[in-house]
Computed example of a mutant assay.
Amino acid sequence: MAGRMNLAGRHVLVTGAGRDTGRRLALAFAARGAQVLATARTQSAAEETVALIRAAGGTATAAVLDLADPTSIDQLPVDRLDILVNSGARYLGPEATPEDITDTIAGTATGTVLLTERLLPLLRASDRPDIVNLISAAGEVGHHRSDAHPAFYAAKHAQAGYAEILSARLRPEGIRVISLFPPDFAQDGSRDADSTLTAQSVIDCILFAVSQPRDCFIRAFHFEQLALRQ
């Protein structure tokens, strides 16, 4: 990992780190020297991520975190934090039960708020605090091109609204709130201009933002989406 230690010593909490983009984020932060707290709904998923990080020479610990459960948020073991990455959110397809809808809104909207509020004292104690919110283009006003359930749109709009007011209120304290609004993207694929956005490109945006000097407040990343093909 030599030459990629620009985040050395920083304590990073990644939600939804048990798979896909959350796992990739945890690995990317660890590869740059950060000490990662990888959280997931199950201990086994979090531990799988930690094992991958340690195998690559990084530092990480695992913890169970169910964002839809306030008790789980309250009991999360963390005593130091520099970067909070709110990447855990359940995608909801066109068909959904009432239980699915409740879980998605609770985890994405309420869970993001409760976790962030709980961790704000730790972020205020950091000299380089950042809050990263991996939202979605579904949280943008007027966006309608995802096939996600309307409840997913509702949850993401709530998340976006919270991030917007939080950014304005925390700016005087030097806490950066960085939100990303990617369209539906692929975990893997070509990174050409005419290809679907990839998870790695989203991750690169996050790493770029948190690596900037403290006078650089990047509030949001909005992505141009490919036109729909007929």
Rank of each mutant, 00 (worst) to 15 (best):
S72E: 00
S72V: 05
S72F: 01
S72P: 01
D74W: 03
D74G: 09
Q75I: 07
Q75D: 12
Q75P: 03
Q75R: 15
L76V: 05
L76R: 04
P77S: 10
P77A: 10
V78A: 05
V78P: 04
V78K: 02
D79A: 15
D79T: 15
R80E: 11
L81F: 07
D82T: 14
I83D: 10
I83Y: 11
I83E: 11
L84P: 09
N86D: 00
G88M: 04
G88D: 06
G88F: 05
G88E: 08
A89D: 08
A89S: 13
A89C: 09
A89K: 07
R90F: 07
L92R: 01
G93N: 00
P94K: 15
P94F: 14
E95I: 12
E95G: 07
E95H: 13
E95M: 12
T97G: 13
P98K: 13
E99P: 09
D100H: 07
D100W: 08
I101G: 04
T102A: 15
T102D: 15
D103A: 15
D103S: 15
D103H: 14
T104N: 10
T104V: 14
I105A: 07
A106Q: 12
G107K: 00
T108E: 00
T108D: 03
A109M: 10
A109D: 15
T110S: 13
G111Q: 06
T112W: 07
V113F: 07
V113A: 07
L114P: 07
L114S: 05
L114C: 09
L115D: 02
T116E: 12
E117S: 07
L120T: 03
L120A: 02
P121H: 12
P121L: 06
L122W: 04
L123Y: 03
L123P: 02
R124P: 13
A125P: 10
A125R: 15
S126Q: 13
D127G: 06
R128Q: 15
P129F: 14
D130H: 13
D130E: 08
D130P: 01
I131W: 04
V132C: 09
N133V: 13
N133Q: 05
N133G: 03
N133R: 00
I135W: 01
I135F: 01
A137H: 01
A137V: 05
A138S: 09
G139A: 03
